[in-house]
Nucleic acid binder design. Sequence first.
DNA 1: AAGTCGGGGAG
DNA 2: CTCCCAGACTT
Length: 379
Amino acid sequence: MPSTTARRLPKTPSPDAGPDVRRVRQRLLKWYDAHHRRLPWRAEPGVAPKPYRVLVSEAMLQQTQVATVVPYFGRFMDALPTVRDLAGADEQAVLRLWQGLGYYRRARSLHAAAKVIVCDHGGVIPDNVADLLKLPGVGRYSAGAIASIAYGTRAPILDGNVARVLARLTLIEQPIDAPDTRKTLWRLAEELVPASRPGDFNQALMELGALICTKANPTCDACPLSGQCQARVVDRVASVPVPAKRKAPTLVHHHVIVMERAGRFLFEQRPATGLWANMWQLPTAEDLPAKANTSELSAWAADRSGLVLSDTQHVVAFTHQTTHRTIRFNVWHGLVTSGRLRRGAGRWRRLDQLNDLPLANPQRKAVAVLIKEDPQQHG
DNA sequence: AAGTCGGGGAG
DNA sequence: CTCCCAGACTT
């Protein structure tokens, strides 16, 4: 049977024929036009989006909520308004703009991508998925998002929001992260995205997931797709999607040893791989036992830096939570009395002059505690 | 297929 | 507390 004939038949579609593509497109775009949020990286209706703004926003938005990204995006664009500015910037400057946002590899990948764009693409961000996928930090989602939103290329996307919306729309009750589920969802996203306004359609799917088809307490009464939603028909919206399995975070202990000399404090850069890669920190021991004492801390500091400490004492403890770890921070303080700093072992800074060093959140917190404990010395 | 990589919003 | 968020990359 010719497919053109089959396509005209669905007056009464069979139950597993999939969603009514044209109706979903039309209703979703109409809803998006009426209800979408105005966001800093989003162009006004009828105005062409700026590809560089789309590129930067998509990097920041990976695994990060819109509300968190907004202030970072503004500061980033003010400091590095063009892809050439970004390509020419120091990596430390890029990391400083990213500090506090997390997943710092995104910043280094974005920086590397900008260099590729300038060197290999004449400073023009690619408009197709194949070339975008070659950029560091750009995977299938980001390539589809940039191609469709910035250039109107017909390309699908699949993120957490879209996966939830499509799983409910078509009643997928397999674990949402299973490989064959992902394959099915990508196929659905590909089938649904229209040739006209693919960027708005993709953003509409995400916007619906963020505002209406939320993980908890979805407002189906306000949903433009409620009439097409298979999960709603059988009253299983609340139980779809089936969540991915997750490991409990492991507990680890980090000892921060504050080394002070003449009102200045030693800072060191972390390795180029792993947690908080290339970020800076007060000297921090990650291999000492949870109940290490002052002499062990002093010995570790001497071994690490070549400097001898006296009057080492405990300052404060706090807990830092990430997705995969619970990190118990213990902060210690000692005065440098002798020794010579090992070559390349760090830099001395006043606590109120750290603007050039990108620090992850727990290190910023440790610094904040030190300033509060001893305000007259650093103010 | 499973692990790694942050931090915060929201329940 | 737990779960998830405009995911990418490594092993």
